[in-house]
Design a protein around this nucleic acid. Structure first.
Lengths: 341, 341
DNA sequence: CTGAAAGCGCTTACAG
DNA sequence: CTGAAAGCGCTTACAG
């Protein structure tokens, strides 16, 4: 199948290739009747511009890179899906790129990609979005970056975020409103800046309620199931055990839930458990997990929007630099008022 | 930062651009000392070929498309990860493309991609890999395809698979060896050809053991958690309930597990439950799920291998057309001998 | 084994 | 508002 080129279209339409180019790129300065006519020929001939020719002459690639540390995590998957749908709707393609800082040649690999692919933009997710040396590489190669949930250098790039601290505070207040006072907290992976924000939000609410969190009720986790399980095994080994546990994400909350079962502690009758994220597995547990819904899909889509707006606004033009998306407290079945315990 | 071109390298090395091209592409017919010298200049100058110029002149893109129906499923995520790692190791980039047959213009969207991006190859996953009209579009555009776990038209494209039928038979034999005779089966989503193969494997083992599966113990599911839950609620409403349940994937097995808990049926004491896939959540349940490990990561990587081998072999050359990967029975904690029940 | 010429299919920069 | 010319940075096809 021989591909149709812009020259074929121009010949058939009786105009120059440049005019066809103007029409397909929606540029101004084409008489309406010419525009319509050319558009009709384009559709008739089923013409599609060659992305490589376009990229070569204009150094626009229509390719957006999504950079991940661990592309297989549930967190990454939902962001990816949001970015994917929006990118396709806007005629861009999404290239997935893993970054491994373990490899000493990560920088060379990245530069290969950046120089070879001439990405129109890049999306950086947590935790790699907080590496200043990484961002610098993108800056050197003039690739616009949007970061999702960064924890520092807020003025350096546009960003998409949600208020983890307020969300954790809301969740803690929910537990307090149920009468809980002895609340354990499982910290998230310290590499992710969100971990600290969630911990601060927990403290905010406790302090406001006149409670000083007990250090013996705080456990270091890493956002993985196993760490929640181990924290909770330690927790339930003490007597009395806390009446509620706030895990910094759902996967760890599930670990806490399993530990409770192993230790024959009824949930929520004897202990309330809450998570954070609202990933799919929150509804596959029994009881179903009370959690905070984090709008990952929407954050992925918003990151694409910011990148495109930026591009359309031009280097000088002003465009949005921070989009904050709302969270939501999702009450399901792992909590119960303390007085009924 | 002005990019370095092949001409810059050629000038510095005192050779023609064509010779540099030969070196970076590893072509034959370059004197070893020239090759080494040029390679040194390339490294010194930190030269990286422009993918668009390359693509435009050679119609090779170094881009491989991974096509999904539902890119957010856990199944898709692990295949993606395998494909991603192997593709990057071989200097290819992975573009993720969703296909929605719900949209009447799916074909046009796909053709835009195929003609615009000139993919070097495409990986099709289940269930879309069994759509003959989809495969035809790739054929028309001369894009080599490798399918993962197809259910028909085996001679049409190279493929990566595992023996679902034998795996299901193995799992069933495990249950039979524990003394179970009254085994319920939850069917998978009929759109996926693997669903039927698993069902056949179950029947194989039952028949070989002289048992005719009871139709009232067979439930239609769709691979989603909820369908497992609903099937099992029906199941546990009967008396006596089966002593074992084989769900066609882990997510549904988790649904069965939750249903058992809701119905106060002890697992595995009163009922054994097994799944299929060995996704991450199989270990986040309590008790941990006995299942079949499906090598998704390896299948994604193998698909890339087949695509590259094919390309290197040329249109006429022979290359591998079917790679079957091994499964594994993973015994965890949701099963128990029937005699102890 | 090596290179000069032409071309891939667009867009940029300019002219009118 | 429209177009002719040149060029993007490689590789192909050919010659020697």
């Amino acid at each position: 199948m021989k591909a149709i080129t812009i020259t074929d279209v121009a010949r058939r339409a009786g105009v120059s290739p440049k005019t066809v180019s103007r029409v397909i790129n929606g540029e101004a300065h084409v008489r309406p009747e010419v525009r319509d006519m050319v558009a009709r020929v384009v559709a008739d001939m089923n013409y599609r511009p060659n992305a490589f020719a376009r990229g070569l002459s204009s150094s626009r690639s229509f390719l957006i890179g999504l950079f991940f540390d661990d592309p297989a995590s549930g967190y990454a998957a939902s962001i990816q899906r949001g970015a994917l749908e929006r990118a396709r709707a806007l005629g861009r393609h999404l290239v997935i790129e893993p970054i491994s800082f373990d490899r000493s040649d990560w920088r060379r690999l990245l530069e290969d990609t950046l120089q070879g692919l001439r990405l129109d933009g890049a999306i950086l997710t947590s935790p790699i979005c907080d590496r200043a040396d990484l961002i610098a590489v993108f800056e050197e190669h003039d690739v616009p970056v949007v970061r999702i949930a960064p924890g520092s250098d807020f003025d350096r790039t546009p960003q998409v975020r949600m208020d983890d601290r307020a969300a954790a505070r809301t969740m803690t207040e929910h537990l307090l409103s149920l009468g809980h006072r002895d609340i354990a907290f499982v910290l998230g992976n310290p590499k992710h800046s969100a971990s600290e924000r969630r911990w601060l939000g927990f403290q905010d609410a406790m302090t406001a309620a006149g409670i000083t969190p007990d250090p013996r009720r705080v456990f270091q986790g890493d956002f993985r199931f196993r760490s929640g399980l181990e924290a909770a095994d330690a927790l339930f080994g003490t007597s009395p055990h806390p009446t509620a546990v706030f895990a910094s994400n759902d996967e760890m909350a599930l670990g806490v839930l399993v530990a409770a079962m192993r230790n024959q502690i009824a949930v929520p009758r004897s202990v309330s458990i809450v998570g954070f994220d609202d990933v799919a597995i929150a509804r596959m547990a029994w009881p179903q997990l009370t959690t905070i819904r984090q709008p990952n899909f929407e954050m992925g889509a918003a990151a694409i929007d910011l990148l495109i707006e930026r591009r359309n606004a031009g280097a000088d033009g002003k465009s949005e630099t921070c989009r904050e998306l709302p969270y939501e407290l999702v009450i399901r079945s792992t909590c119960m008022p303390r007085s009924l315990a």
